[in-house]
Design a protein around this nucleic acid. Structure first.
Lengths: 343, 343
DNA sequence: ATGCTCGCTTGGAACGATCAAGCGATGGAG
DNA sequence: CTCCATCGCTTGATCGTTCCAAGCGAGCAT
């Protein structure tokens, strides 16, 4: 059945409209869109012309209903913390949207309204609104992972399953230790021998990982680490205090930090004491945030390859959603070092 | 028709399943979900129990197909520019996701792949994937606005229709002039009399708007503006150079800038010359980016009420999508001043 | 000439929800 | 007692697409 002739063109054209115009059946139009190789060349051209002429595009809802797929990927926005790790997030979302767009997927943002972080997932999952999730907040173990697996919801994690080596879901992560090792080596090459670490408390997996790179690099050269490490909250203030104490008690000539925030604290301390960053004392941060780029003289920082992370995540997602599904193994990517004036 | 008895529970429950369990018809279940007031109290309870027991949630695709609505709002991510105005964007997206979530809408991100910024809109529109758009990149006029209107696509703009006073679409914007006026007054109250402006080139509507607030505040007190204004690119380097020249030629005691980026340039110049920000020379930025918050002593900055912007935008969207549609007039919100050490 | 396969096309039936009309029971008014 | 409106729920049709199985003409071998 086609549109009533005198109908206003408010309604978008349907498959049937295209079929009528091209003089073929609905199924043929559907094949022209989804399996063009099934059609004879001349028929295909005719149908494509009709599609072009009407400006037809398949109705997403109808297609989703029939195929039980939405081509949407759910991404939960972490509760907004004014500064921590957020810098990287923005870049990551950008990359993810672009990469998944090329693969025919769109990104659906949502928030876990209030206390229960699973509420948002549950709703989208049960209403079959998304095909899969990208889970990013895996910094403290990840309760979602077990929950999602239990519900057989396809998902890929940005972040290792730290506390669960047996986890079977695909994941992509950045090798934080490799990043801080890179940073520490860079300082060693510049002649520094007393290199301090300012990081997070022990219960942070990511923090422990990043710290490991620093100590590994030093130990490899037979240099000391004891007395040169500090564990604090991820605030500028903490970084500032920690660096002041370390300077007094251990006289390091350089700092490697678990975040740009902490590194900014170091820069503040240097300024307090009239020390020139990069000349008197060096400092390196982590995440290559906007701050690192615009601060005076620039802050050397470990940069996560978020574009590559997004590519790998989308790739893993395509695997999960393929027929039959393919579960990729975890992938660990190596960060780079953005060298600026502070080192 | 219900599920085949022996079927595995892989398939989510449908309306029909709930209906069977509750001993009512499909339509009654539908009403229980969408128009509960139509049911007798005891029936409603019975249906709700069945819904609860099965963990039922309406299938989005089916509902979308029937109601011709997706409850999705399209938001185009601007092509990533490493720093400009991006800071605010992140905060805005957060607020938008949260606010629209409360109104029952989700945010769908997409990118205009490549050159044609309209391609992404067109695709989503024709496939009826989204109900409406939020348009943010209206800084240089907005070609999308005319295009979307022509296609009768509902949309709300974050940003005034500068070049088209006759535009009929709803919009929400922040009064940039009020913000810079606030900043300038703040400096005047501190005793400054020679206050310089560093802004963008004339072809930027937003830049002109922000500049107007500075000159208005000065003229109101009978203070001079000539020779105190500079127009440059939005980079730190430009801000640094412009402020150096202004200091030499016009001896201002304070700067108001069109962006945090430019203000950072000012801070760099002050540091170059051994001047203390906030004590010797004051500086104020715009956007209250992360940088403003973490730079040493802090950078005073005009803060856009992005949470309120999001609320108003969602409100206008709800109007557009209501039956009958309601087209709200444009809304102009007033920013606040985040006072820090630089002033 | 017959039968069979092959390649493309065709009508019918889902997918799971909502809309519009219908229908029996109840109750108040005439 | 009849009529009709109202209430509360049920029934059939429909949204636009893809899947399924059948149709059908042409080509080829027997």
């Amino acid at each position: 059945m086609s549109r009533i002739p005198g109908r206003v063109p408010t309604q978008p054209p349907t498959l049937a409209d295209v079929a009528e115009l091209a003089g073929v059946s609905r199924q043929t139009v559907s094949n022209a869109v989804n399996n063009p190789e099934l059609l004879r060349a001349d028929t295909l051209v005719r149908v494509q012309e009709a599609i072009e002429e009407l400006g037809y595009s398949p109705n997403r809802a109808a297609r989703n209903l029939r195929t039980r797929a939405s081509h949407l990927i759910g991404l939960r926005m972490n509760p907004r913390q004014e500064f921590t790790a957020n810098a990287a997030m923005d870049r990551f979302v950008h990359s993810l949207v672009e990469t998944s767009g090329e693969a025919g997927y769109h990104v659906l943002l949502f928030t876990g309204a209030g206390a229960d972080p699973l509420a948002g997932y549950d709703d989208l999952l049960r209403s079959t609104a998304v095909d899969a999730f990208v889970v990013t907040d895996t910094y403290l173990g990840n309760p979602q992972a077990a929950w999602l697996r239990e519900r057989r919801a396809p998902f890929v994690a940005f972040g290792r399953p730290w506390d669960d080596a047996e986890a079977t879901h695909p994941w992509v992560d950045v090798d934080g230790a490799a990043g801080t090792e890179l940073a520490t080596r860079h300082l060693l090459d510049k002649g520094h021998e007393r290199i301090a670490w300012i990081g997070w408390r022990k219960d942070s997996w990511i923090g422990q990982d990043r710290r490991a790179g620093w100590s590994r690099a030093l130990k490899q050269r037979g240099l000391p680490t004891s007395g040169l490490a500090s564990r604090v909250e991820d605030t500028i203030c903490s970084g500032r205090e920690a660096s002041a104490i370390l300077l007094d008690e251990a006289q390091p000539s350089a700092f490697v930090c678990a975040s740009d925030t902490l590194a900014m604290g170091v820069l503040h301390t240097l300024a307090d004491r009239g020390l020139r960053p990069g000349e008197d004392v060096a400092g390196i941060g982590f995440d290559d945030s906007q701050v690192a780029q615009v601060v005076r003289h620039g802050l050397t920082s470990v940069r996560q390859p978020l574009e590559d992370v997004a590519i790998q995540i989308v790739n893993a997602l395509e695997g999960l959603l393929a027929h039959p599904p393919r579960v990729d193994p975890g992938i660990l990517l190596t960060p780079t070092l953005a060298v600026r004036g502070s080192s």
